[in-house]
Write a protein that binds this DNA or RNA. Sequence first.
DNA 1: ACCGACTCTGCAAAGGATTGCAGAGTTTCA
DNA 2: TGAAACTCTGCAATCCTTTGCAGAGTCGGT
Lengths: 329, 329
Amino acid sequence: MPVTIQDVAREAGVSVSTVSRAFTVPDLVKDETRQHVLHTAERLGYRPNRAARGLITGKTGNFGVIVPDLSNPFFPTVLKGVQARAREADYAVFLADCDENATEEIALVQAMAKQVDGVILCSSRMSPSQLERVVGTTSLVFINRQVRDHPAVLMGAAGGMRQAIDHLAALGHRRVAFLNGPKASWSNRERRRGLRHSARYDMEIVELGPFAPRFEGGPHAADLAIAEGVTAIIAFNDLLALGVMSRLADRGVSVPEEMSVVGFDDIPMAGMATPPLTTVAMQNERAGRAAVDLLVNLLTVSGAEAGDLRRELDCQLIVRASTGVPARS
Amino acid sequence: MPVTIQDVAREAGVSVSTVSRAFTVPDLVKDETRQHVLHTAERLGYRPNRAARGLITGKTGNFGVIVPDLSNPFFPTVLKGVQARAREADYAVFLADCDENATEEIALVQAMAKQVDGVILCSSRMSPSQLERVVGTTSLVFINRQVRDHPAVLMGAAGGMRQAIDHLAALGHRRVAFLNGPKASWSNRERRRGLRHSARYDMEIVELGPFAPRFEGGPHAADLAIAEGVTAIIAFNDLLALGVMSRLADRGVSVPEEMSVVGFDDIPMAGMATPPLTTVAMQNERAGRAAVDLLVNLLTVSGAEAGDLRRELDCQLIVRASTGVPARS
DNA sequence: ACCGACTCTGCAAAGGATTGCAGAGTTTCA
DNA sequence: TGAAACTCTGCAATCCTTTGCAGAGTCGGT
């Protein structure tokens, strides 16, 4: 039923080699012949069988992407970037969700290995020792995770954090809480790194947590922050920040008059919250695209080892209405 | 570098056929031999090459999923279901985002066709004539789109709409606006179908729109609704509803005291809005799983034509704080 | 002792594409 | 005119599995 290269060859009156070449190495076949072949192929609706091609070339033309949790709105956006860029580069993408489970993640990489030319690991949850097991199985590119000299695209949250601190300092805040996310994660370490910027100012940072980086983690965090007497809160991510704001509203603490709140990620609902949330926007989609670029580069130059293996994207503080001048005590 | 069936055969001292059979038709090979082969394969880390297998069996072990827009939080959740169920059934999934573009959608289906055993189309944007072109290319299962006798899983929004109307009627609303989403979409038609339920009550429905089913569409819609003097608004989806609420807040119209608002989808941010949004929850994840089940079923029974080709999931109204008794005029 | 019925295994042919090698034409240049 | 150098095309091997067919052995029954 599906039309094969044989069908095209027969119909066009040439050999299969010629058809193959007309597609893959156009300069090797005479203009006239090529036109004819291409036209015939088009007419018959021929599309090369990538599996068969992969069998001989060793390249599948596929990528894999593994994300920790699709229901965290952060990931679909980077996925969107990966998707778009991959298509431009004529790759198809396999998607897998490992449910925040490192063991699943390993299994997925191994299962994918044979069917893809490389896989992109988003905020990988694997421990270093687990990583060792999959490195070498296939080409790996990390997003938001730094592991030795492996290619990675990093969203420099430290810079974003510095902007947030500059912003809060300028408004006059002197005592600010940081709500930790998953302590072990690269993302959290990166945010804390930026936190040191507070030393430039007469500003005191109160670290709280860790908290689950979800809306549900917010209320508990908010109560602790209030008890600490801070005038501003920087949350690990927007979900947590929204949870905080919800609790603050319940307790009658007005934002930003009595408490300023800053998030990270700039997920869509950040701008829709009341008040709209000041947050550090990451270039998720671009990160996704960059990861694909890195991977493509890695695969084409192969032995050359050239090219930059690390891409760092900067963040941008987006000031909305959840931050303001602190009430004078 | 990668270990093939040949390697295993050589190492185990049997023919490749035996190795192959040890995996695919275990009863045909002697217990002892099978154990030995399996053990050897395990030791060598052998994993069958699905592409090569697919070449001969005609089955790839892959599915495709096409969604209109990953940044709409509705889709990642159904994607999550698809993903999970597919893995259980030992299928890998290709993901593609068509950016709400029907032409892209066709191209994607065709590009995927050779590499998958079937594809799941989420809220397909294709016109009937465009559909004709891809039907037959591969096995298709639709989510939230009804097309002739094709297998589909439908989230019965009409039922949800009826619940919403019951709810608003019970609260005493007499004049209610419905904000249309994309007019041509099945989802919108389905909601309107449920709208007829208002005839049971002394309730008048004012249809407005269509509006872009996004947050940005909300403000315009809200203004129109206010001008119509309704006491409650039912929006095509949550994003639109949130946009409406944002505008209402800006204009000083309190929710739910002066205006009740109902959404559809129950996206995560619905519960986090202020006030939390009353909405019709869909079983997205289950829909994703159901679609995979349908597809698997379709592929295994093949000729038999048996099995139900349509799965209907019901909706559930979730009453939160955005709906209440209307203010007496 | 022989035959049929089983059980288990191997050979070899697919399946759809790519590619090294060689052959057939054509052009260039002496 | 002939040889060398190109340009273009076809043959056939190859990638990794699966599977129809047939051969080798075992066993039970007569």
